[in-house]
Design a protein around this nucleic acid. Sequence first.
DNA 1: GAGTGAAACATGTATATACATGCCATGTCA
DNA 2: TGACATGGCATGTATATACATGTTTCACTC
Lengths: 245, 245
Amino acid sequence: MSALSDSASPLYEKVKDFVLANIGSGKWAQNARLPSENDLVNSLGVSRMTVHRALRELTSEGHLRRVQGVGTFVAPPKAQSTLIEVSNIINEIRDRGGKHRAGVILLERVEHPAAAIVSAFEFDRVKPVDHSLVVHFENDVPVQLEERYVNPALVPHYLDQDFTSIATLEYLQRCTPLTEVEHLISAVPAGAEQARLLQMPERDSCLVLHRKTWTGATVATVNTFTHVGSRYSLGSRYRPTHKPA
Amino acid sequence: MSALSDSASPLYEKVKDFVLANIGSGKWAQNARLPSENDLVNSLGVSRMTVHRALRELTSEGHLRRVQGVGTFVAPPKAQSTLIEVSNIINEIRDRGGKHRAGVILLERVEHPAAAIVSAFEFDRVKPVDHSLVVHFENDVPVQLEERYVNPALVPHYLDQDFTSIATLEYLQRCTPLTEVEHLISAVPAGAEQARLLQMPERDSCLVLHRKTWTGATVATVNTFTHVGSRYSLGSRYRPTHKPA
DNA sequence: GAGTGAAACATGTATATACATGCCATGTCA
DNA sequence: TGACATGGCATGTATATACATGTTTCACTC
């Protein structure tokens, strides 16, 4: 009773898939303790070295946390990249402390945008496309404008979501098995519409994070416009895991 | 004759260090072929599995490239992050084709900037600090302004470098064993000085990449101001190495 | 009851061995 | 000369075994 898939991939990959499947299905919840290496050896019928390699790689990839002498645990989900992590302004505001309030206004949602837009965002042959425009507030001050084009066919229950309470990027990240992510960061002067929605002077600088994701076909395109009055920025801090040459 | 360090770290780590040392010293040049696993087994006196693990991890970390049946090779130096890679505008221009020309003007270089600046950039107790201001051109059009604060004590031969021919980030990346890198990206309206140097309208949007590096003490701070007339942007494309849950 | 020590158990590392897989150079045959 | 087979060599994977190291638990002793 192997419980492992029968594809042609190496055994340790199948063990990794098995672990990830159990994490993904929710059977092994966050911070839950995994069966010990010897348990997996018995239940999966592979050698301990193979199990060990699978668990070690999953650990280095951030999926697991291991403590010698104690056990192996499901790691909290890691952000797909530091960019996404920091760009999720809702979390940023929430983490900043108690006296700030975050708000959201859903401005519009249309399911059939103009054909020109559809082609510009490379959603070929997959309409209808959900287009929505959302403004995020902090303390009643608008700080970010989010423009989304989502292929609802690829995101389960997307249309049922209440995006005034959950951050888009967070939701998309959790629900879609992405194969590719593209980020583009640029700075543009605010246009008339953007300036109005963000209550900022026209032509003031906006930091734009453009994020496009694929799973074969295009899943979603999200543009976030942030009014950067030296208040918000994207950032990352990098610690090499190895000694540079 | 082990040729391996005698610290308390595991054997496979010593093998990794041994390989990295040979790469770092230039003994094994870029794209050079490493000794085979069996050669290393004989010369280092460890088992093949240990050598294999070391080489496998160095491969996944981007230091080596392996081809089954052929051999192991020193990988071309990877960019410290996609941000740096793309932000190096000199390379960007050079790679864009033959009909573009890149140029540089070194505006000023002072070794003892004002104390206020020194403290603002957290170069405590390490003056003199080299401060220089460089404008990058493409086809005689200024596209990027680079402002650098470098601790010359930590960067060998920094003062001897001719930075009109080599990109700063590239040089700093190659010469300093960084322990930490911080990036901040923001968008600001161009100030009077920046607008003049970049020949752009004042208050037009600038994309700013702020990069600070440490090796214990602060090594360098580099701010690059790019005039983003929908011509330049930072970006990264991400392909997950594993299947997300 | 508090402290101590040993056993049990978890992960971490190292080795020897075997076989699988992929590439290349060599040589042979048409 | 070209196509093909083959052997050599490199990396890739899987296993069994052994020991090292760190944690928890539990019984024993004082």
